[in-house]
Design a protein around this nucleic acid. Structure first.
Ligand code: FES
Ligand code: FES
Lengths: 145, 145
DNA sequence: TAATACCTTACTAAATTTGTCAAGTATTTT
DNA sequence: AAAATACTTGACAAATTTAGTAAGGTATTA
C-alpha cells in the first residue's frame, strides 16, 4: 500500500549525492550511478526532469556534472518527489484537477484530504540538509486527528 | 505520487455502509453497490477479502448481507486498507520481509521509515466511528521531524 | 580534434491495477 | 419442494503504470 516509485527514491538519493558537492563541485552522473547503484541511463532521465523542475543545474564537458540550484536547506524532499512523480494525490478526487462528482456526499473525502496534507507537510519540512546532517527523524508521535 | 488503490478506497466506503447497519442489520452487497456507485462484481471480491481478514461476517439467504465483526470504534481505516492492499510499504526496503542490502549505508532509510510510521499512525487512529460521526479531521498541523 | 559528459526522444517488457464473468453454495419464504 | 435471494469462488483480461534500455545528439574542454 502507498508505494513510492523507484524513480522518486533514486531521485532523492541522487540529490543527496549532488548536495555533497554543494556549492562549488559538480557531481558527474557516473559518480552518482556508482555510489547509489542506479544505471546511468535511468539517472539521465531522472536528473533531466529535476533540472527542468529547477532543482539542479548542469555543467557540460570534462569536469562537468550537476549542482544544486539552491542550498540544501532550501530544497525539500517534497519538492524532489513532486518534481518526479507529481503531487501527492491519494485519490483521483483529491487531485488538484477535476474534483470528484460525489465530493459533497463522500464520507471519505475529508479523510483523504487530511492524510494527504499530513504527508505533504512532512515531506516539505524535510530538506536535503537534514539528510546530509544525518538527522534523526522522529517517528514516535503518531498524531491523530 | 502515493496513490491509494481504488480497491482500498471502495473498501473503506463499503465498510462505512456496513457500519451503518451495526450492530444488527445486515447490509446487502447490492445496497452498498448502489449507494457507493461501485459494481457488485468488484465489491464481491473486496468484501470477500475483508471477510477473510476478519473484519466482517456474512449472512446468506434473503435478508442477508454483511455485518461488522466488531464495533465501529474498534475497526480502524488502517486495518481495512491493510486487509485489502497489504501494509504501508513505501519502499521495497521498508517491507517487513527482506530488508535492503544497503540498509546500513542508505541515507534515506530512516526517512522512509519515519514517514511510513507516521502514515500508519494516522490510519490506525482513525476508525469507522469517526467516519460515521462525520468527524472533522485535523489537517492543519504538519508535524515535522 | 579527441575526450568527456550532459541532453533528448523513443521504445518496450514486466508488473500492477481494475475490473468482468460464470458458475456454485447456502438460506429463507411460499 | 421450489423459487428467490444473496453470498462464494476462481479464472481471466483489458488498461495503465512502472521501470527501465537504447541510440544518437549537443556542448565544453584539454
Ligand atoms: S468519491 Fe470522490 S471524494 Fe470520495
Ligand atoms: S536502498 Fe534500501 S534502505 Fe535505501
Amino acid at each position: 500500500m502507498l508505494k513510492l516509485s523507484t524513480k522518486g527514491q533514486y531521485g532523492v538519493r541522487a540529490m543527496f549525492e549532488i548536495a555533497r558537492g554543494y556549492p562549488e563541485h559538480p557531481v558527474a552522473i557516473r559518480e552518482i550511478a556508482e555510489r547509489q547503484d542506479v544505471s546511468v541511463a535511468y539517472l539521465e532521465q531522472i536528473l533531466n526532469t529535476l533540472r527542468k523542475a529547477g532543482l539542479i543545474t548542469s555543467v557540460r564537458g570534462p569536469g562537468g556534472g550537476y549542482l544544486l540550484s539552491r542550498s540544501p536547506r532550501e530544497i525539500s524532499i517534497g519538492e524532489i518527489l513532486r518534481g518526479l512523480d507529481g503531487p501527492v494525490a491519494l485519490t483521483a478526487c483529491q487531485d488538484p484537477l477535476a474534483g470528484c462528482v460525489r465530493a459533497d456526499g463522500c464520507v471519505t473525502s475529508l479523510l483523504w484530504k487530511a492524510l494527504g496534507e499530513k504527508i505533504e507537510g512532512f515531506l516539505d519540512q524535510m530538506t536535503l540538509h537534514d539528510l546530509l546532517a544525518g538527522k534523526k527523524f522522529g517517528s514516535e508521535r503518531a498524531v491523530g486527528a
